[in-house]
Amino acid sequence: MIVDLLPTEEQTLIGDSVAGLLQKLPVERLRDQANFYGAAEAAMWDGFRAIGLFSLSLPEDAGGAGLGFAEECLCARLLGNALTSPDVLATMLAVRFAFGTGDAKLAAALQSGETRACFASADDVERAQIVDGRQASYALSWRRADASLWRFEPGAVQHCLDETILLRNATPSGKRANAEGFALRARIAVAAYLVGVAEAVRDMAVAYAGAREQFGQPIGAFQAVKHACADMAVRAEAAMAQTWFAALALDHGGGEEDAAAAQVLAIQAALENARANVQVHGGMGFTYECDAHFYLKRAHVFAALNANDAVVRAMLLNR
């Protein structure tokens, strides 16, 4: 498969319109508890709907924009840049899930914002916890290559490592739909969000390293810091290139291997970059006031979604 991994003009325009909307969600909003649990996102849900975020990849006769998964992934990366509530990405995926399984009614309800979806942390409903989803009634979870979308009733609230995320137990209630192969799409979309996190912290570290002075010069001039930033750039670019490749491959009969590779590398890039960003910020990085910790915690949330190392290994090794 021969690919061009840089955005086309049209894709750049789509990205610009999403980025424009996301300006209303600066990461520092999370310093205010009122914005926890996706509250700011819930309030502007209609804005997401209006720019067509939930129906990007649906055919035009189904009310969509007729675009591909590639465009959805470019948007997912922007959602990651802004640490947008996982519900937005989960709903994007759920629309596509419902459409693909022939549930036009649910697809329309999700598209309109009347019904919302969220991620479940595991596919095994006994263990699954619900991630954010304050206004959601459907949860998306996945196994190796297949995924499920199921109705749930929320239960007890758990304390989450990422305190900006609402984490709850859940009991399935009613319908559970399955879609073969859909887990690959979910894995790649999650990877795209994590690419956005990895790039955001790279940029945050580089900006600080260029501004903060010690020993009479910007700390970014020192190789220990410069090389840490360079390694962040390498990890982010490898994860980005692999995720885009996997996204394109998916629409062309792509296999498990590329999706799993994207997932593994995006998780590593987001986590390692987020950690390195704390270090580059020194004492400031250790504080609650510095936004570095929000990225680190959110990276952990996405890394943990339906995590199963043995399955990912088997996908990579074709076993």
Partner: peptide
């Protein structure tokens, strides 16, 4: 290694 070799192809 497999994931990284895939990424090298993508890079």
């Amino acid at each position: 290694l497999k994931a990284e070799v895939s990424a090298l192809r993508s890079l």
